[in-house]
């Protein structure tokens, strides 16, 4: 950056610190960023125009001016639906459980992997652990359902074999187990993949710090506590802030594939609710209203999380 600014020194009438002056100096940088700005604008900002749909009684094939405007009717409908709050509870609960699990376990796993001295074994474990990431949810759901089945499912047979239970438990039919089953299968599938990021961050820590610590007499635990974990703190907080922003947008594949009528009160999530009540029922406007709500909540969550982190840890993404 310095090189460019120095090279482009121009003795014009513009003040050195004015915006325009800087812009002129950095014109190539600006030019280079233009395609990306256009890209962001086209794909992220233009579609926001579609939000107007939420305030209309949208009907296809009519021009914008021919639509009927209904104000906040769709939002009122949304907030007066009991089901919506139920769905909200499920979304936040599963999201939160996923957040906690997906932070503690992969970090722990990354730190443990890092401590392994046997390279071949370490690579092997790492590969095995991230392979499930490439298995689609359809297959994972099939495996989970089969394993938890009362009709010859492995888990029930094991529990019976250990005499822990007298008769098989209908895991998939018990509403209260649902959140845990989703979280557990999520960890199995994504743990290895998330670990990669932390492992990469750990690799970036200067080995001299470890050497210095060892000279000072720090053992394995001390090194983990005082060097490894602080070393990846930035990565952890950035990822955490971003996942908090996505708390409400957890998708619906898992819940859709693992759910069944008996647990529907615990399995229906916001995205599924939006799909069922929006596009599938051709209620485009209602669907848009849900999506606006979704985005607004996400933005608020993101800012709040960012603000808190800024205060507490002096680290933030904005």
């Amino acid at each position: 950056m310095e090189a460019i600014t120095n090279h482009n020194k121009k003795p014009g009438g513009l003040k050195r610190n004015s915006f325009l002056y800087k812009m002129l100096q950095q014109k190539y940088l600006y030019l280079m960023s233009i395609p990306f700005v256009i890209w962001v604008f086209v794909f992220s900002y233009l579609p926001i125009w579609g939000w107007t749909m939420a305030f209309q009684k949208f009907r296809p094939a009519r021009s914008f001016w021919d639509q009927d405007w209904v104000g906040f009717k769709h939002f009122v409908d949304l907030f007066s639906d009991d089901r919506f709050f139920l769905v909200m509870r499920n979304t936040l609960a599963m999201s939160f459980m996923g957040l906690v699990a997906n932070f503690t376990i992969p970090i722990l796993f990354a730190v443990l992997l890092n401590e392994l001295r046997h390279q071949v074994f370490k690579r092997f474990v790492q590969t095995v652990s991230y392979l499930p990431h490439f298995v689609s949810w359809v297959v994972v759901a099939g495996i989970v359902t089969k394993m938890l089945s009362i009709d010859g499912g492995v888990v029930n047979q094991m529990l019976m074999g250990l005499n822990l239970i007298d008769k098989p438990i209908q895991f998939m039919g018990e509403p209260h187990y649902f959140w845990s089953i989703v979280t557990a299968s999520d960890i199995w599938k994504e743990m290895g993949w998330t670990t990669i990021i932390y492992l990469a961050a750990i690799t970036g820590i200067d080995p001299e710090q470890y050497e210095a610590a060892r000279v000072d007499g720090a053992g394995r635990w001390r090194q983990i506590w005082h060097i490894t974990l602080p070393g990846i703190r930035t990565t952890i907080s950035i990822l955490l802030i971003m996942s908090i922003g996505h708390l409400i947008q957890i998708g619906f594949e898992k819940q859709f594939l693992l759910g069944n009528p008996l647990v529907i009160d615990y399995s229906e999530v916001l995205d599924l609710y939006a799909l069922n009540n929006g596009i599938t029922q051709n209620r485009y406007s209602f669907g848009t209203a849900i999506s606006i709500f979704n985005s607004v909540v996400s933005i608020i969550l993101l800012f709040v999380a960012n603000g808190i982190f800024k205060r507490v840890t002096k680290e933030s993404i904005m």
């Binding site: 099939g142 089945s149 009709d151 209908q170 039919g173 069944n260 008996l262």
Partner: peptide, 15 residues
């Protein structure tokens, strides 16, 4: 079948 309301179509068919 106690799994009637839990099973997915493929489990049902395979039974």
């Amino acid at each position: 079948d106690p799994e009637s309301f839990v099973q997915k179509e493929d489990q049902y068919r395979s039974k």
